[in-house]
Design a protein around this nucleic acid. Structure first.
Lengths: 144, 144
DNA sequence: AATAAAAAAGACTTTTTTATCTTTTATTTA
DNA sequence: TAAATAAAAGATAAAAAAGTCTTTTTTATT
């Protein structure tokens, strides 16, 4: 569904959101441990997200990644678009370059419905909304 | 969503279904032309599907790929499972190895709904059901 | 000012996916 | 039986994705 890069990105961002709501920054080591991802891979991914302005960071002692209130209000859809692009929301299910109402593939209409649901779901999923269930250990970011 | 291999596979199978309903076999050249795919790549893909029993073939003059009535009743879900595996139907959206009701990821329940809809849609999409709209040029397997 | 901490940057490696090319095997037709 | 046709098989190549390692830059603390 999503690329591995995107999966790690979402998990990391949800974790950073949790730490940010607690008023703290998250370092690469901590993040990679908490979401069970390769350390230098998630480092690279977060550098990209940082360049794109989806996450903030500071260097040096006590540095790390964090989100301000505006970014906490961002959605998983923002991350997916930034990492994997629009394809999952608007690409043709059968890979046709031109697939639209005017010239649909055989599963165009069925797929469109599912894609729209995916978009709605991800756009509604705000980063700030996951903290509580994570803290109550009702949901998890790694197998444990 | 699907791998390129899977996209080509579905398009090829829908085309073969159309030709089979007309009582004819489809050769690699014809298929690759009609679905706009690399010839030797779709050849390889169909060999796999043939080995797995999802499509029939004969060699030699007048040979080619075709589907009998039982295979025409197969669904797109069969192809997806065969090519890309179960992941799209049951894998975790965030890539967790263990993600279930017992230990869900933060988007487990929302994703589950979408995955189930995807499964229903693809299981309901029988290969034999696409012929008519294709013939009436209401749907397409390539950009043209 | 020196040291340490942490992200940024960039080069590199490995693995997987996508794609191509050549040879072999099976079948039909002349 | 020879020639032609078409898929099967297998080896190889190219491109993209996933992952690692080293060096540089920035910032805080002593």
């Amino acid at each position: 569904m999503f690329s591995k890069t995107c999966e790690y990105a979402i998990r990391a961002m949800i974790f950073i959101a949790k730490r940010s709501k607690a008023g703290e920054k998250a370092g690469i080591k901590e993040i990679s441990k908490e979401i069970d991802s390769p350390e230098s891979f998630i480092a690279k991914i977060l550098q990209d997200l940082s360049r794109k302005g989806l996450v903030l960071s500071t260097k040096g002692p006590n540095g790390g990644f964090f989100l301000d209130d505006k970014l906490l209000d961002g959605s998983l859809a923002d991350i997916v678009k930034s990492v994997d692009g629009e394809k999952i929301f608007s690409g043709c299910g059968l890979g046709l370059k031109q697939c639209s109402e005017a010239k649909p593939c055989p599963i165009h209409y069925q797929f469109k419905i599912i894609r729209e649901e995916m978009r709605n779901m991800l756009e509604g999923a705000k980063l700030s909304s996951f903290t509580e269930q994570l803290e109550n250990r009702l949901t998890f970011l790694k197998r444990d």
